[in-house]
Amino acid sequence: MAINHKHLFYFWKTAREGGVVKAGEALHVTPQTISGQIRLLEESLGAELFDRQGRSLELTETGRLVLEYAEEMFSLSAELEQMVRHYPGGRPTDFRVGVSDALPKSLVYRLLQPAVSLPEPVRIVCREWRLERLLAELLEHRLDLVLADTPVPAGLERRAYSHHLGESGLSFIASRSLLPQQPLPFPSGLGHLPLLVPGEDAAVRQKLMAWLERRQLRPKVVGEFDDSALMTAFGQAGVGAFAVPSVIEDECLADASLVLLGRVPELRSGYYAISMERRLTHPCVLAITESARQKFTEVEYLEQPD
């Protein structure tokens, strides 16, 4: 016999509300009606869904299994209603993007924002992993695009294409609480500050450390972060100075507790959109690449000497 969805709905509501009384109040029916509907469902399934101990209800093993399916079914039902109400033309297109964990999250948002501003509805699905894992997903066509700070590595088993979005120098930033009363000269003052640095997966890491060495600057490295957002949070807390791509410098400095120490335009980070297409055709990818190139052109003017 097919499951009666009304019976299943009453069971689902009871499990979510924590009892038949609260479920009855939520649905504006009597607790007896709720109990009767659940009993009919149990009879059709041939299994108890609740362990009844007085007024207390505990899900049985079968009840937990049925609840998992009910959650998914009624979640899809709610999603369907949203689609019909808000997207009369149909379900939005899924745009599946892999984001290298070395990329600053605010930069990723700036890069992806044009895709959700297209006339046709788009639902972005983001996955953040190491680049190797993302490329494997791309090659299996489980991702439409990968955003990274390096191009496709040589020797990749199958062909993927790197589309250069732009470059940015680095801006060094610190919390006001970390600084002495007198302004520190830049860049020599970095040698007197604790420093937070990107993790080894970040393409700019080696360039940064080599630049410090050439300048004979030896700050105390107090933190190393694969996640740039976490590094920024530690920087905001005054743990150490840190560097961000100049293209997102303005976002960081919107926090009044942070100050710009100086810019190093020669410490370049490149940013790439990696796809299976040699010639880009996906409307979301086209919107991202066109907008990104404009943004990176604007930051080139920011980095020009005064």
Rank of each mutant, 00 (worst) to 15 (best):
F11G: 03
T150S: 15
P88L: 07
R278E: 15
R218I: 08
G199R: 10
E157F: 06
S188E: 15
F9T: 00
R64D: 09
L165N: 01
V244R: 11
L67N: 06
V125C: 08
V122F: 10
I248K: 00
H28T: 05
R159V: 04
R214F: 00
T30P: 03
T60D: 09
A78L: 14
R16S: 07
V66G: 02
L27A: 06
Q181N: 06
R176Q: 13
I274T: 01
P187M: 07
N4V: 09
R55F: 04
Y161H: 14
V99P: 00
Y10Q: 10
V97N: 05
D201R: 14
T150Y: 01
T281Y: 04
L131F: 13
V285Y: 00
P219N: 06
G238H: 11
S75R: 15
R123A: 10
P180V: 08
R142G: 01
T297C: 03
G238F: 12
L107I: 10
G189C: 04
L57V: 03
R218H: 15
L302W: 12
L40F: 05
E120N: 08
L302C: 09
R133S: 12
R218Y: 15
P265H: 09
T62V: 13
V66A: 04
D226M: 11
A78G: 04
G98A: 08
A115W: 06
M231T: 06
A256L: 12
G54S: 07
P121N: 12
E43A: 13
R176E: 11
R263S: 11
I3V: 15
L107M: 10
V20E: 08
T30F: 05
F9H: 15
A70S: 10
S44E: 15
V264C: 09
K207I: 04
A229R: 09
R127W: 07
A254F: 02
K13C: 12
G189P: 05
G270F: 09
A292N: 10
E71K: 11
C252V: 03
S188D: 10
A160R: 00
Y272C: 00
Y301N: 05
S188I: 02
G235F: 00
E303I: 03
A78D: 13
S162R: 03
Q304F: 14
L145Q: 04
P92E: 08
G89P: 02
Q236Y: 04
E298I: 08
V122D: 02
Q181E: 14
Q294P: 00
A256R: 13
E290W: 07
F296E: 03
M83T: 14
S117M: 14
L107D: 03
E128V: 15
I3C: 04
A70R: 01
L27Y: 07
Y87M: 01
R218S: 15
H5M: 12
E200P: 05
P305N: 06
E132F: 06
K6L: 12
L143W: 01
K207C: 02
D101G: 02
V146R: 00
V21P: 00
Q82D: 13
L258V: 08
A203Y: 09
R205F: 12
H282D: 13
E300L: 14
L49R: 06
S269Y: 00
Q32S: 13
R91I: 07
S75C: 05
Q53F: 02
